[in-house]
Simulated scan of single mutants.
Amino acid sequence: MVNPSVCAMKGDMEYAEMAAKRLFVLEPLNAGTYIMLSNMYATCGRWEDMASVRSLMKSKNVKKFAAYSWIEIDNEVHKFVAEDASHPQTEIMFEELRRLIKKLQEAGFMPDTKLILHNVVENEKLASICYHSEKLILAFGLIKKPQGTTPIRIMKNIHVCGDCHQFMKLVSRIIARPIMLSDSNIFHHFIDGSCSCKD
């Protein structure tokens, strides 16, 4: 069977719709299929189709799970969601993340706001994508373990977005330190600006 996540990566709407319809029958309560199809519609600017999928999800009482990332430091697990400001060290963590973003922008990197699939203004998209949970976790890990060559190890409960993937690659080069990120689909090992998944 066609995997909708492969269709999403290739932007193939015809096969994505076909795969999603089949999965709606096989796994009617799997939120991932609804979300992926909805996100593909949003990427294409098909807002009515996106709303239709979200409405179908609601009518079937399919629950969307929260995206989060976590890291273990000194035998303690720290967990964050996007734009999370609940941690006691939030201010220095956000400061570290802003420092990393600035360094990357000086090197030519710009966050890919096309990946924000909500119909909002550009500055809201930029603010949203800059504070994804895996970026917050990376900044936190660098604060807690600033020295050394040991990898920063991050876990994420869903697939890492394209912007965060690119971000991790470039940060691994700038800080000259490996980053390991395990998401729901694959293990990513970022070293010196490249990833083991070969993008």
Rank of each mutant, 00 (worst) to 15 (best):
S55D: 14
F80Y: 06
E122K: 11
S196H: 02
V53D: 07
M9N: 09
E122T: 10
K135H: 02
I129N: 01
R22V: 07
V62C: 11
C195I: 00
L104K: 01
L170T: 00
V171W: 01
F167Y: 06
D74P: 08
S196N: 06
M50Q: 15
T90Y: 04
M9W: 11
P28I: 14
M57L: 12
M93P: 04
H159F: 14
V62G: 08
M155K: 09
H87S: 07
N30M: 12
V2K: 11
F24E: 08
L136R: 01
H165L: 06
A67E: 05
V77H: 04
F80E: 08
M9Y: 08
K144S: 13
K21I: 05
E124K: 12
D163L: 05
S182E: 13
S133G: 03
K198W: 13
K198S: 15
E96R: 15
R22I: 08
K156M: 08
E17I: 12
E83R: 07
H189K: 14
I179S: 08
A31Q: 12
S69F: 04
I143Q: 07
D112Q: 12
T33A: 09
S182Q: 15
S59L: 08
M110F: 07
S182K: 10
K169P: 02
S182H: 09
A16W: 09
R46F: 13
W70R: 09
K21Q: 09
I175K: 02
Q105F: 00
A16M: 12
T113H: 00
N3R: 08
S182Y: 09
A139T: 04
M180L: 11
K156V: 06
A176D: 14
K135Q: 04
T113W: 00
N75Y: 14
I152M: 05
I174E: 06
P178Y: 08
A107S: 07
V53T: 01
K144Y: 06
L117D: 11
V121I: 01
R54F: 03
H189L: 06
C7G: 07
L126N: 03
P146M: 03
N3E: 09
K64C: 05
A85C: 09
L136K: 01
T43D: 13
E95P: 00
E14V: 03
L126W: 07
K114F: 14
Q147I: 02
N119D: 15
M1E: 06
N157E: 14
D49H: 11
I116N: 02
G32T: 13
L97A: 04
L37N: 10
N39I: 04
D84M: 02
H118M: 07
I158T: 15
C195D: 10
S86L: 11
K114E: 14
A42C: 12
R46S: 12
H118L: 11
E134G: 04
E17W: 01
G148P: 00
L37I: 08
Y131A: 04
L100R: 00
G108N: 02
